[in-house]
Design a binder for these strands. Structure first.
Length: 815
RNA sequence: GCGAAAGUGGCGGAAUUGGUAGACGCGCAAGAUUCAGGUUCUUGUGAUCGCAAGGUCGUGGGGGUUCGAGUCCCCCCUUUCGCACCA
C-alpha cells in the first residue's frame, strides 16, 4: 500500500506505453492450445475507406471487451482483424483524385491500422489478412475453381441488374427496394442482357433456411427467411392453342378449376408468338410501356391492374377449357415462371384484374360466401371444400391441395413443386479493383479454368481504370491474351472481376494462417479454431454478407473441403451511433464525431467505456458530447480510489455490506457481459466504485473487504479500460498482466442479503417500508405490518381479510 | 398491405420469475472549495397538492386477469426498420 505512487491519471501516456509493451510481450497472440477450450471471436472486417470513424469503435470495442472477458474466463480466445480491400470506392477515389486504386487502398489501410491500434483492442495482428493481397485472392480464385469443378458456378446469358452509375452488374441482393436502387449508390438500376457468372446459391435454399444449429438474432433469421421466400405448391403445365407449353407455379392447385384466364409477364418469351395480329399493336405498346416503367419507377400506390389481351388462348389441363391469355405488369418475369393461371375468385389481384377487364369470376372453393362470381366483392382466400371442380368436387379443404397434386401427377399435367424467391448469386463485376475471375475463354473449347498452379491470376497495375460499363481489364493491351489450357490455342481471359462479397465470404478462414502457402489455410489451425464462435457486426449485412458467407461454407462442406456447414455459430448485431442531431452521421451534415479527437481529449479507455455505456448496444442512438464527461469522471474517481491514501484510517463497520456489494456486482457484471448488455456492465461497475469510495471515507480502507473489492474492480474494469486497469494493476505491485488474470468468481454466500426492506402494502398500495431480517416468517411480518402506524391508518380499523406474504419481499394486507 | 422491433422523468436508459418504477449517467438547482472556472466535491431532482406530516396521480391510449401489472391477455394509436403485385 505504501508503495503506491500519487500520480495524476494521464491516459495518453499510459495508453501509448502499455500498447507498446503488450505488442512486445505478444500478450494477445492467439496460439493453438489443445488443453484449453477455444473461442473464435470475430468482428466484421472494415473496408479501408480512409478513416476509422466512431461507428468502427462502436462495432469493435464492445466485442473486444467481451473477447477479453471470455479470455479471463479461461477460454483460448482468437480475435483477429483484417481489411476487405477490393471494391468500388477505391476506383471512384482513383478517378476523382487520379491516384491508383491500389495505392489509395494501401495508404488507407496503413492509416486505419494506426488508428485501430489506438483502440487498445486485443487483436492478434500476426493474423491480419487483406483481401487485395495476391496471396489472399489467389485462394479466392482457388475457391472459384472448386465451385466450378463441382458444378456450383456457371455462366449464363440473361437480363441482369446493371447500375449505370457504378457501371457494373449487381447481384439481386444488391438491388434495394421496390424502386430497384443500387445498394451502393442508390441509382436506379436497369436491366441488361449479359453473359455473366453465377454461383448456385439456390441449390442451398433449404439449408440456408435451417437456423437450428445457430444462435442468431430472430431478426436476421426472418430477414433471410423472407429473402429466400420459399413457397410450396405445384407446377402446372398449360398449353397454348398452338401447343406451346406454358408452365405456371401456384400455391393453390386446388383452385385450378377456377382459372378463367392466364396472365404472362410482358417480357415473357412466348408473348411474341401467341399474340394475334389484331392485338399485336396494343400488346407491343403495352409491353414497351411496362419495360419503361421498371426502368423509371413504379410508384403509384393505387396500382390499378393494367394489362391487355394478347388474342391468344390457352387450354386449362384440368378441364380442357379454352381461356384467354393476357399480359400484365403485375406478373413478374423474375418470379416463378413469369406466367400465372388467374383464379379471380380466390386471389385478390386476379379478382381486381378480372373486374376491371370484364373477365369471368368463378368460385371453386366453398368458403361460406356467395357461390356466384357476380355476387362476390372480393376474392376469398380461405381454404374450403372444392366445388365446381370435376371429379374432385367435394374434397375437403385440408386435403384439397394434396389431392389435386396427386390428381395432376397421375395425369402428368403437373407436379408438386417448391418455388423460391432467391436467385442465383451473380458475381461478375465489370470493374478493375476486384479479384480476377480465373477463367479463360477458348473459341474452340469454351470456358476453361486457369490451372491451379498458375494461380493467382494477377491484377495488372498498369491500367486505365475509367469506367465504361465493361471491365477495364478488357482494354489492357496484353493482359487478356492467354492460351487455352485445354488445346493450347489462342484464348482470352475473363476480364470481369468477382463481387467483393465473394472475398469477404471467407476471410475468417484466411485469418487462421494468413502466411500459409500450401492452401487457403493451415489444416491444424482450421481444425482447432473453426467455426467462428461469436460474430458481431451491423444488421445492414443481414442478407448480403451473412447469406453469402453461409452459402460459402455450405458449399465447402458439400464439396468435402470442411466438415462443418455453418461458419458462424453465434451472431449479435450492434446498432448505429447517430449524430447529436439524431440524424445519420455524415460529412455534409457536419455531425460527425471523430474518435481520434476524443482519444486525444479523454483517452481511449474513456471512449471505450462511454461507447459501452451510452446506449443499448443492439440499438445505438444519438451521440452526447456531455455524456462522456460522466464516464471520464468515473475513471478519474476510480484512479483516485486506488492511488490516493485514505484520509481516515480508523476501522469502521460495514465490511459485510461491502462484500455483499462486491459480489453482487461480480454476479451482475458476469451475467451482463455474457448477454452483451454492456451498458449495465458499466453502470454496475460505477455503483461498485461509488460503494468503495464511500467505504474508504467510512474508514474501511485497511479492511480485507476493501482490498478484495479494489482487486475485483480492477479485474472487471480490465476488459473495458484495459490500459488504466493494467497501470493500476502494476502500481499495486503485480508483475504479470491484469489481462491474464482469472475472471472473478462471485461468492454467492457473500452476495446474499441478510436484511431486506419489507414492503408493506394495504390493498396493493405501498404504505410502509420496514427493515427486517431475510428469514422473517409470515406471522412476524404480519406483526410488523400491523405495528405500523401508517398501515393502521389505512386499514381504518378493519381486520385484513386476506394476507399475502412474499418472503424476502413484501406483505400485502387486503381489507 | 404483410412482417419484425419498440413506446418508461427534461435526456440516454435500469427494473432475473408479475412483487419498492425511475438503478447508473447526463442535464438542472442549491451549497462548499477556488483569484477565477465549462474544475472538483456535497446535497437535491417523476408530476402534482401541502408550511409540514402526508396524500393523489404516474411506464403511448382504452379495457381485462390478479391481493398486486412497465412486465400477462384483448383492442387501438404512434415510431423505426425490413419486404412489398411473390402467384
Amino acid at each position: 500500500m505504501s508503495t503506491r505512487e500519487r500520480r495524476k491519471y494521464d491516459p495518453q501516456e499510459i495508453e501509448t506505453r502499455w500498447q507498446q509493451r503488450w505488442t512486445e510481450d505478444g500478450l494477445y497472440d492467439a496460439v493453438i492450445d489443445e488443453g484449453r477450450e477455444k473461442l473464435y471471436c470475430l468482428t466484421m472486417l472494415p473496408y479501408p475507406s480512409g478513416d476509422i470513424h466512431i461507428g468502427h469503435w462502436y462495432a469493435m470495442v464492445p466485442s473486444d471487451a467481451r473477447a477479453r472477458f471470455k479470455r479471463m474466463q479461461g477460454y483460448n480466445v482468437m480475435f483477429p482483424i483484417g481489411f476487405d480491400a477490393f471494391g468500388l470506392p477505391a476506383e471512384n477515389a482513383a478517378i476523382k483524385r487520379n491516384v491508383h486504386p491500389k495505392e489509395w487502398t494501401y495508404q488507407n489501410i496503413e492509416n486505419m491500422r494506426r488508428q485501430l491500434k489506438t483502440m487498445g483492442a486485443m487483436w492478434d495482428w500476426h493474423r491480419e489478412a487483406i483481401s487485395a493481397d495476391p496471396e489472399y485472392y489467389r485462394w479466392t480464385q482457388w475457391f472459384f475453381l472448386q465451385l466450378w469443378k463441382h458444378g456450383l458456378t456457371y455462366r449464363k446469358n440473361s437480363a441482369v441488374d446493371f447500375c449505370p452509375n457504378c457501371n457494373t452488374t449487381l447481384a439481386r441482393e444488391q438491388v434495394i427496394g421496390n424502386d430497384r436502387k443500387c445498394e451502393r449508390c442508390t441509382t436506379t438500376v436497369i436491366k441488361k442482357e449479359l453473359e455473366q457468372w453465377f454461383f448456385r446459391i439456390t441449390d442451398f435454399a433449404d439449408d440456408l433456411l435451417d437456423f437450428s444449429s445457430l444462435d442468431w438474432p430472430q431478426r436476421v433469421q426472418t430477414l433471410q427467411t423472407n429473402w429466400i421466400g420459399r413457397s410450396e405448391g405445384a407446377r402446372v403445365l398449360f398449353k397454348s392453342e398452338g401447343g406451346d407449353p406454358i408452365e405456371v407455379f401456384t400455391t393453390r392447385p386446388d383452385t385450378l378449376w377456377g382459372a378463367t384466364f392466364m396472365v404472362l409477364a410482358p417480357e415473357h418469351p412466348l408473348v411474341e408468338k401467341i399474340t394475334s395480329d389484331e392485338q399485336r399493336a396494343t400488346v407491343t405498346t403495352y409491353a414497351e410501356q411496362a419495360v419503361r416503367q421498371t426502368e423509371i419507377q413504379r410508384l403509384s400506390l393505387e396500382r390499378d391492374k393494367s394489362g391487355v389481351f394478347t388474342g391468344g388462348y390457352a387450354i386449362n389441363p384440368v378441364n380442357q377449357e379454352k381461356i384467354p391469355i393476357w399480359i400484365a405488369d403485375y406478373v413478374l418475369m423474375g418470379y416463378g415462371t413469369g406466367a400465372i393461371m388467374a383464379v379471380p375468385a380466390h386471389d385478390q389481384r386476379d379478382f381486381e384484374f378480372a373486374r376491371s377487364h370484364g373477365l369471368e369470376v368463378r368460385p371453386v372453393v366453398d368458403t361460406g360466401g356467395p357461390l356466384s362470381g357476380d355476387e362476390m366483392d372480393a376474392a376469398t382466400t380461405e381454404r374450403g371444400a372444392m366445388i365446381n371442380s370435376g371429379s374432385l368436387t367435394g374434397t375437403p379443404g385440408e386435403e384439397a391441395v394434396t389431392r389435386t397434386i396427386a390428381w395432376l401427377e397421375e395425369r402428368e399435367a403437373g407436379e408438386s413443386a417448391i418455388n423460391y424467391r432467391l436467385r442465383d448469386w451473380l458475381i461478375s463485376r465489370q470493374r478493375y479493383w476486384g479479384c480476377p475471375i480465373p477463367m479463360i475463354h477458348c473459341p474452340m473449347c469454351g470456358p476453361q479454368p486457369v490451372p491451379e498452379p498458375q494461380l493467382p491470376v494477377l491484377l495488372p497495375d498498369d491500367i486505365e481504370w475509367r469506367p465504361t460499363g465493361e471491365s477495364p481489364l478488357k482494354y489492357h493491351p496484353t493482359w487478356r491474351l492467354a492460351t487455352c489450357p485445354e488445346c493450347g490455342g489462342d484464348a482470352e481471359r475473363e476480364t470481369d472481376t468477382m463481387d467483393t462479397f465473394m472475398c469477404s465470404s471467407w476471410y475468417h478462414y484466411r485469418y487462421l494462417s494468413p502466411d500459409y502457402h500450401e492452401g487457403p489455410w493451415d489444416p491444424r489451425e482450421l481444425a482447432y479454431w473453426m467455426p467462428v464462435d461469436v460474430y458481431t457486426g451491423g444488421i445492414e449485412h443481414g442478407i448480403l454478407h451473412l447469406l453469402y458467407t453461409r452459402f460459402f461454407t455450405m458449399a465447402l462442406h458439400r464439396m468435402g473441403i470442411v466438415d462443418f456447414s455453418e461458419p458462424k455459430i453465434q451472431l449479435r448485431n450492434q446498432g448505429t451511433i447517430l449524430g447529436e442531431d439524431s440524424e445519420k452521421m455524415s460529412k455534409s451534415r457536419g455531425n460527425v464525431v471523430a474518435p481520434d479527437d476524443l482519444v486525444g481529449r479523454y483517452g481511449a479507455d474513456c471512449v471505450r467505456a462511454y461507447i459501452m455505456f451510452f446506449a443499448r448496444w443492439e440499438q445505438g442512438g444519438p451521440w452526447s458530447p456531455t455524456g462522456i464527461e460522466g464516464v471520464a469522471r468515473w475513471l478519474h474517481r476510480t484512479w483516485s480510489l486506488l492511488t490516493e491514501e485514505a484520509t481516515s484510517a480508523t476501522t469502521g463497520d460495514g465490511e459485510r455490506e461491502l462484500r455483499r456489494k462486491i459480489h453482487q456486482s461480480a454476479q451482475g457484471v458476469t451475467r451482463d457481459f455474457e448477454d452483451f448488455q454492456f451498458n449495465t456492465v458499466i453502470s454496475t461497475l460505477m455503483e461498485l466504485t461509488n460503494a468503495l469510495v464511500a467505504a474508504k471515507s467510512a474508514g474501511l480502507a485497511e479492511s480485507s473487504a476493501f482490498e478484495e473489492g479494489t482487486e475485483l474492480l480492477l479485474k472487471m474494469i480490465a476488459p473495458i479500460a484495459p490500459h488504466m486497469a493494467e497501470e493500476l494493476w502494476a502500481l499495486r505491485g503485480h508483475e504479470d498482466s491484469v489481462h491474464i488474470q482469472s475472471w472473478p468468481e462471485a461468492d454467492s454466500e457473500a452476495a446474499k442479503e441478510e436484511l431486506f426492506t419489507l414492503v408493506v402494502q394495504v390493498n396493493g398500495k405501498v404504505r410502509d417500508k420496514i427493515d427486517a431480517t431475510i428469514d422473517l416468517g409470515e406471522s412476524e411480518a404480519l406483526a410488523l405490518a400491523l405495528g405500523s402506524e401508517s398501515v393502521r391508518r389505512h386499514l381504518e380499523g378493519r381486520e385484513p381479510k386476506k394476507v399475502i406474504y412474499v418472503p424476502g419481499r413484501l406483505i400485502n394486507l387486503v381489507g
